[in-house]
């Protein structure tokens, strides 16, 4: 069977940790009034705890603090790094990623139609280039044909004139021409 002192020691432990309830505290006080050994035990424990609480705080040397502050001195950061670090603080990280995702999606939706339009434009430009090349070629061909036709016409006209002239001339003159005009083939008609 548990003695009164054993119960009191248990209460004393709770008292030292400020966990003893009021009714038990009153019972303990009553016991301590009559029990010298428990009273001494409590006094010793309280003295010990007081001693531990009063242990002197050892002052940290200034050299250690200076060394800590030197080692943790923040480096100079570029404005870009400062902005990204501020935006990517843990509290802002998720919203920042979400915003970046939405921005990227919007950019894609904006860019795709632009790219398609650019494709159509380039096709038209190509067509225009091809057309202009054909035009130049056709023009050159037409010029050449015109020259050819005009040359042929000139030749035909010349021959016709010559034929007419030669047929209608008197025989004596024809003979003179035969002798003097050198442009007929072989110098003769």
């Amino acid at each position: 069977m548990r003695t009164e002192c054993e119960q009191a020691r248990e209460w004393m432990d709770l008292l030292l940790e400020n966990e003893l309830k009021q009714p038990e505290k009153e019972q303990l006080d009553r016991h301590l009034e009559s029990c010298k050994s428990c009273r001494m035990m409590l006094a010793e424990e309280q003295s010990l705890i007081q001693g531990l609480r009063n242990l002197k705080k050892v002052p940290c040397p200034d050299a250690v603090i200076q060394s800590i502050l030197r080692m943790t001195k923040p480096e100079r950061r570029s404005w870009f790094k400062r902005i990204t670090q501020a935006v990517l603080q843990p509290a802002f990280r998720k919203p920042a990623y979400a915003f970046a995702g939405v921005l990227a999606a919007a950019l894609l939706f904006w860019l795709i139609p632009k790219m398609e339009m650019q494709d159509t434009g380039s096709e038209l430009a190509l067509q225009e280039t091809v057309d202009s090349q054909d035009l130049e070629k056709s023009k050159a061909q037409a010029e050449w044909t015109l020259l050819y036709v005009s040359k042929k016409l000139n030749q035909a006209q010349e021959k016709a004139v010559k034929d007419v002239v030669i047929q209608d001339l008197p025989e004596t003159l024809k003979n003179t021409i035969k002798k003097t005009v050198p442009f007929f083939k072989g110098g003769r008609i």
Partner: peptide, 30 residues
């Protein structure tokens, strides 16, 4: 600083070690 330094001093019982520990604690914190 004094709380950490005192705890380290009382536990390791060597001033130089306590100084090193205090420094490491705050650098790790940063």
């Amino acid at each position: 600083k004094n709380a950490v330094f005192s705890y380290a001093t009382y536990l390791v019982r060597n001033r130089q070690d306590a100084e090193d520990i205090t420094q490491d604690v705050f650098v790790k914190l940063w």
